[in-house]
Design a binder for these strands. Structure first.
Length: 505
RNA sequence: GGCCCCAUAGUCUAGCGGUUAGGACGUCGGCCUCUCACGCCGAAAUCCCGGGUUCAAUUCCCGGUGGGGUCACCA
């Protein structure tokens, strides 16, 4: 059996959006599963809208996702000659013909048909059976012409067996003689796509269901050329919560792949989420630790026929994107090997200019770094949380959360004394660890007759700037004796200071 | 509007004639606890409607409704 060859043919008219990303991902998964080749083809024949920057952005998006291709990227525009030859061949065979109707004439006819509420509003076949003389007359008139495919005027239908939707056919009577070459000589998508897929020896076309109803036309093109018709598998679409098509224009950055890269998603977690939109194995699994895991499980049979909704609510203060996407990212964040997580966190810290190269080298500092990640990652959802919520662990310059400061640090004016006292006790410790710090703090509270919670929560805010975080003794230990004590003393000064102005207060 | 496709909680889904309709996210409550998170326990919430077929329909058939796709000299 010949090897499977699939393709991903984005048109470079904008960033890679989640629909395209999912199509690319499914094609890639399939190829990895079945051991074939993925061809990348940039369909740039729409000169008006195509830009090189978009093409680059799409490539970047794919690379970030970890999607690799085996051939290309080919540029569709490089094969214009081949497309024209194909069209010419169709005309020679009599499978297509030149049509001299002007756009105005066609528009008028269409309007008339609409006004008359005719069910068939396609091309009426005016130029379908022109004699050589008539044609010559139009040519000498200088009329421009398009090339139309000659749909057989007979009973019956064209169809194909879609791997997802099953037998899909359309009655020939429903099809009009569609244009395959523009008057300026440039072939249309329906033709160039077929010509390219044939030239690239594509055996399976896996694409969005928006192409489903156009596929019979393409099948006719293959057949007219005497080419093997590839298999088709159409994937249901991804819509927004209002069931509208996803578009950058309507939804903004949140539907682009770069958004997820820039907002702290792990590339693979993003893929994992995308894969689950409209595909399942039948078991309850939704976390695929590695690409290999997913590849093993993937199959066309699991693809849903119904459209799925990308559950993003604009302006939601709690969820920057689909909550499930966030959840899957968090799941990966806390279950992947810490050593694999480390480079991603490093990237974030570097971007924030708070990376210390000592954390890179082997030894204690490296160990400290990895252990810290283990300690804090369980409560984060995004990689960016490591530079915001976790900032105090990596940098001595950290912001003080206004609410937490008010709630815990200024809870009791006496904390202005308690915190330095605690610092003094901790400083005196010869062995500074989880147990000794806890014993020390609790003993102090006992002596002062205060609840440990008071000192614990105040300490947390003092040394991390936040009211939430890991257990306090873990934080003491992670931060180390010197930094902990210095911060306790330093922030004790804030206890009785007037509240810093904040939007909240 | 014509043609085509689809239809299980708010969302992603399992189900393929007989189930207390399963799981996940989200929501709410509880446990744990120095906070938050994790984890654990629990709750609310679903078979679009109407006809058939059948001893029995979420499941099969038909119709309706709803949603989507597509009807270009865009891709």
């Amino acid at each position: 059996m010949a090897e499977i060859r699939v393709r991903f043919p984005p048109s470079p008219t904008g960033y890679l959006h989640i629909g395209g990303a999912r199509t690319a991902l499914y094609n890639w998964l399939l190829v990895k599963k079945l051991g074939g080749k993925l061809v990348l083809r940039i369909e740039d024949t729409d000169v008006e809208r195509s830009t090189e920057a978009s093409a680059q952005a799409i490539l970047d998006g794919l690379k970030w996702m970890g999607i690799t291709w085996d051939e290309g990227p080919y540029l569709q525009s490089d094969y214009a000659e081949h497309h024209r030859e194909t069209a010419e061949a169709l005309v020679q065979k009599g499978a297509a013909y030149r049509c001299y109707c002007t756009k105005e004439e066609l528009a008028a006819k269409r309007e008339a048909a609409q006004a008359a509420k005719k069910s068939f509003q396609g091309y009426d076949g005016t130029c379908r059976d022109l004699t050589d003389e008539q044609r010559a007359a139009f040519e000498s008139e200088g009329r421009e012409s398009v090339v139309r495919f000659r749909v057989p005027r007979q009973e019956g239908s064209v169809g194909f067996n879609d791997l997802v939707f099953g037998l899909t056919e359309v009655s020939l009577a429903e099809l009009d003689d569609f244009v395959i070459v523009r008057s300026n000589g440039v072939p249309l998508y329906v033709l160039s796509n077929v010509a390219d897929d044939h030239r690239d020896r594509i055996t399976l076309v896996l694409r969005g269901a928006d192409h489903l109803v156009n596929t019979p036309k393409q099948v006719m093109l293959y057949q007219a050329m005497g080419w093997d018709v590839p298999q088709f598998a159409h994937m249901a679409l991804t819509l927004d919560p209002k069931k509208a098509k996803i578009s950058k224009r309507r939804h903004g950055e949140v539907v682009t792949v770069q958004f997820y890269r820039d907002h702290g998603f792990l590339p693979w977690a993003f893929c994992n989420f995308m894969a689950m939109l409209g595909w399942s194995t039948g078991d309850d699994r939704e976390l695929y630790e590695t690409p290999e895991d997913l590849i093993r499980a993937f199959s066309i049979e699991g693809m849903a026929k119904r459209n799925s909704v990308f559950n993003y609510r604009k302006g939601d203060p709690k969820f920057i994107t689909d909550p499930k996407a966030l959840h899957i990212n968090a799941l990966h964040l806390r279950t992947m090997a810490v050593a694999d997580l480390a480079p991603h966190v490093k990237q974030q810290l570097e971007a924030a200019s708070i990376w210390d190269t000592a954390w890179d080298e082997g030894g204690d500092r490296r160990t400290w770094f990895l252990e810290l990640l283990e300690l804090i990652r369980v409560r984060y959802h995004l990689l960016t949380d490591f530079v915001t919520l976790a900032r105090a662990f990596f940098d001595d310059d950290y912001p003080m959360d206004a609410k937490a400061t008010k709630k815990s640090l200024r809870k009791d004016p006496a904390l202005a004394q308690y915190l330095p006292q605690l610092a003094e006790r901790l400083e005196g410790l010869e062995t500074y660890n989880l147990e000794t710090t806890e014993t020390t703090l609790r003993a102090l509270c006992e002596e002062l007759s205060i609840k440990p919670g008071l000192l614990i929560n105040a300490s947390r805010v003092a040394i991390t700037g936040q009211g939430v975080g890991p257990g306090i003794f873990d934080v003491f230990t992670a931060l180390g004796q010197d930094r902990t004590c210095a911060r306790l003393r330093d922030k004790a000064k804030l206890v009785e200071q007037p509240a810093t102005p904040s939007p909240q207060s």
